[in-house]
Design a protein around this nucleic acid. Structure first.
Lengths: 337, 337
DNA sequence: TTGTATGCGTTATCAC
DNA sequence: GTGATAACGCATACAA
């Protein structure tokens, strides 16, 4: 096909005016059945497809949302995306995914492009929630919602999950199961999520009246399977009578690595060490010993974010809000034996 | 911000004509430094952002590519996307990801929207490579490349990996390691990839002069961890002297499930059963026993696909081509002991 | 019911 | 070096 055909071409072929073709497209009831048939035939013959750019230029707004995410490989984000997708579908919009791959430059490129495209709204899990690029988007009038991060000011809507509560839930569960020596495995503490989960854990520990030094921190340099294995070696290297009887991992990948290391070394889970993970990714329940984990309402997170961005786009009286979801503990064999 | 500002607004504020503003944007060398400074100042003051729709309407083409993929949760596809992303970045384009989630209807919606947007090109791993929706895209003049699937006709460019060769590599490796009773684990055989990998395995088996009935097929109803575990129970339930000494799994998730089942039941890998997986996903090398696996050049797949779609968009003499990449066996402890 | 004219924001061509 | 103007494809207000 040399050139896509336009309403003008359709009009010519159907022997009607350009306005009539437009009416067939947008107010078919105002067109007589015969004329409509003629026009539709012509559209079919020519393989006519609306030009969205022209439409959008005229309408002043587009029919798409976008989610700029940090890591497409992390099931957490794809689940969030799934929730956003559903909300978009309901609103008759398309959702495009943009993978920043944790790189600020790529995130910036995407945001700039999306603003130029005049998308209806942007969801973003930013590399840095404080970064000025986000304010630039706002200045240019594109609605934006921050997902799974929060920002000190309230210049944007945001949706997140209460990580401190998540940490608390994990540790309270372990305390209930009778553990009095627990390891927190996670890091680096530059990650806000890690800090908050640990803070919640500590608070629960203190409230139970347990001595500070029996909740030990085993730092990792990342939230990966490999780091989990290495942490496992450190934890199990401790003399038995001083060794923790349970571990709370800052995410499931760490927990899976830990689990692997233990079974390789002949330790029993939860007999020698009980384990709680975080995120409840699919692999958590599919692990050799199904993992107890803290579940975040991922799809709801995405769905709510999309709803907020649409409200900001449509509702002149829109007010920014910070939505915080409640996590939930899912108990499985790794703590229940 | 009530309304985004346009070149006209900028021109008014800078006290120049609209054409000059355009020159500043597109041919800055034709504008005197003073004028340019004035205009740039005005753009800054107003927070001017180019309207991509108008630009695109004028130019007749957009500056984006899209990849419509089946399953954002599968690391295979996200790696393909990563490769495409790199190629897009090199060409100064943005790549949008569209997640069809294996649903033909959503795939259709996305394709329609992308055609209306007049994107420069579409990469797609389709639910059904033969489906007519793909031809519709072509009829409307949007370049399209099929990724990781092939089609009987050659109406499109496609990039894929030689699955039959992959199956052959896996089985040849096991034969070299001295195995003479092997299980192929995978299914359902409605999936072309599964059929091809098995076909390759059978061919290698026959060429080695081994008896047909010593390559047994253990069917699964999906390519998941859970299915892998259940297959493990079936394989290891066989009396020892008739039991396979090695298994070739149609993908890594199956292999991981199998591995879990074995270690839970006290079997040794590769001592009691050697395992070869397929895809070489990240978790394969991070498994308790690192997995031997067949690696596909995922990023190259995406990169090449993007290059092909750009060639189709730019080059009038473009010819469709079917690119088939060669897989590679990565040997690790699960077969080497 | 159908046709005509206008403008959305940008770019490029052509005078000045 | 700068400014006026037409065109991209569509949707709408209005005229016929």
């Amino acid at each position: 096909m040399v050139r896509a055909s336009s309403v003008k071409d359709v009009a010519a072929r159907a022997g009607v005016s350009l306005g009539t073709v437009s009416n067939v497209l947008n107010r078919p009831d105002r067109v007589s059945p015969q004329t409509r048939a003629k026009v539709e035939q012509a559209m079919h013959d020519l393989g006519f497809v609306r030009n969205e750019s022209a439409r959008q230029l005229r309408a002043g707004r587009s029919r798409t949302l976008a989610y700029v995410l940090l890591d497409a490989r992390n099931p957490f984000f794809t689940d969030v995306a799934e929730g956003a997708e559903r909300a978009a579908e309901t609103a008759g919009l398309s959702l495009f995914l943009c993978h920043s791959d944790n790189r600020a430059s790529r995130e910036g490129d995407y945001l700039a492009h999306l603003v130029e495209q005049r998308v209806q709204g942007i969801l973003v899990t930013p590399v840095d929630p404080q970064a000025a690029v986000l304010d630039d988007v706002r200045r240019n009038g594109t609605p934006l919602v921050i997902v799974d991060r929060t920002r000190s000011d309230d210049a944007f809507c945001s949706v997140a999950v209460d990580d401190e509560l998540g940490g608390r839930l994990a540790v309270e569960h372990l305390i209930e199961r009778g553990h009095t020596r627990v390891a927190f495995i996670g890091g680096p503490d530059t990650i806000g999520q890690v800090r908050d989960r640990l803070a919640g854990a500590r608070r629960a520990w203190a409230e139970a009246g347990l001595p500070d030094d029996q909740l030990t921190v085993v730092p990792t340099s990342g939230l990966t399977v490999v780091e989990g294995r290495s942490a496992g070696e450190r934890v199990m290297g401790v003399a038995r009578r001083r060794r923790p009887t349970a571990a709370f991992c800052a995410n499931d990948l760490l927990a899976l690595g830990l689990l692997q290391q233990l079974s390789t070394s002949g330790f029993a889970v939860p007999g020698d060490l009980a384990i709680v993970g975080y995120d409840d990714i699919e692999y958590a329940s599919a692990a050799a010993v199904p993992l107890t984990s803290v579940r975040q309402p991922r799809q709801e997170l995405g769905q709510r974010a999309a709803e907020l961005v649409l409200d900001e786009a449509d509702n002149p009286a829109h007010l920014h809000q910070q939505v915080v979801f409640t996590p939930e503990l899912v108990a499985r064999r790794s703590t229940l034996g």
